[in-house]
Design a protein around this nucleic acid. Structure first.
Length: 299
DNA sequence: GCGTCCAGGTCTACC
DNA sequence: GGTAGACCTGGACGC
């Protein structure tokens, strides 16, 4: 079964898919040879399905639902989730106007860069972000793969959904440490999942929050295991770009691009991007990943 | 193959 | 408010 979704004129499918590392973390999977982004989606009813997303025509995405028939309501829910992941409902015209003002960022609107891929749920984004902290990318991939394979739903014998908060909440800390390889992050994942499962917090509300960014930042930081780096990058996935989210990789890139490899304090980096106002976090990310955009994609 | 060192963010205790 | 040390894993390195 195939359906289509119209996309904004400034939308670039592959630049969004490859906007950061999420596309290589399960349940996302890029099929380069087929030119598709695949993912297991889960509905509010608990039903799961595999969808392949491609962009054969300029004005619309094509969604191929692989393993299931869907009701009209489920189809609508799937399309909403895909729009959420690819940021199709967000207006980037103001950001692109700002980019045009800076000579070194005029490439951004030309390439349709700026939309950052995200998960259908805030929960998945937060869990994944915690799994990126204080470890190599390879370990992040291992943790996320284990979460899906050991706690998600299996379909088509090979593909897994991302686990619900209840599934993680039911685990022991020992299981998360030893089987998921989450290490000391395990109590953080457990606490968050339990609070959500019990209904004590609803982090899904963050995507529609009317709070000023500083207040939202404090709320995101209130999750144990989410420090300045993780909170800033989660805010970017919530559509707020006021914080940079500096990690060691970005730091090194900045030093290489702007300081001839010499080190500088984070305050210097923050000062550098202050002129970009409320979009500075996004300009910072695009600056340190500009070299990605010099390659043809899909890679 | 084994042991050691180090990098990678966040938390907590302490000053 | 700032800082030190612990947390855990995997890769690099030396033996």
């Amino acid at each position: 079964m195939k359906v289509t979704i119209p996309v904004p004129s400034d939308f670039n499918f592959w630049r969004t898919v490859y906007s950061h590392g999420w596309c290589s973390l399960q349940p996302f999977e890029v099929k380069k040879e087929e030119g598709t982004l695949r993912r297991v989606f889960e509905f509010s009813s608990g039903k799961v399905l595999l969808a392949e997303i491609s962009h054969p025509a300029r004005s619309a995405l094509t969604i191929h639902i692989v393993n299931s028939t869907t009701t009209q309501k489920e189809k609508q829910e799937l399309l909403e989730q895909i729009k959420t992941c690819l940021r199709l409902d967000e207006d980037y015209s103001e950001f692109y106007r700002e980019a045009e003002k800076h000579r070194s960022f005029r490439w951004v609107p030309k390439l349709g860069a700026g939309r950052l891929l995200r998960a259908p749920t805030v929960f998945e984004d937060v869990v994944k972000m915690i799994c990126t902290t204080n470890c190599s990318w390879a370990l992040t991939e291992t943790m996320v793969e284990n979460l899906c394979k050991k706690l998600g739903y299996l379909i088509l014998d090979t593909r897994y959904s991302f686990p619900r908060p209840e599934s993680i909440a039911d685990c022991s800390e020992k299981f998360l440490r030893k089987e998921i390889r989450a290490g000391y992050r395990s109590p953080y994942l457990l606490e968050l999942s339990k609070r959500i499962a019990k209904g004590e917090v609803n982090i899904e509300e963050w995507r529609t929050s009317a709070l000023p960014t500083d207040e939202l930042y404090k709320e995101v930081r209130s999750v144990k295991g989410v420090g300045p780096y993780a909170a800033a990058n989660l805010l970017k996935l919530l559509g707020c770009y006021d914080y940079l989210g500096i990690d060691s990789w970005c730091r090194q890139k900045f030093f290489g691009i702007h300081k001839n490899g010499r080190k500088a304090s984070d305050r210097v980096i923050e000062k550098f991007y202050e002129p970009f106002g409320k979009w500075r976090g996004l300009f910072f990310w695009l600056d340190v990943t500009k070299h990605w955009y010099e390659k043809k994609i899909p890679f």
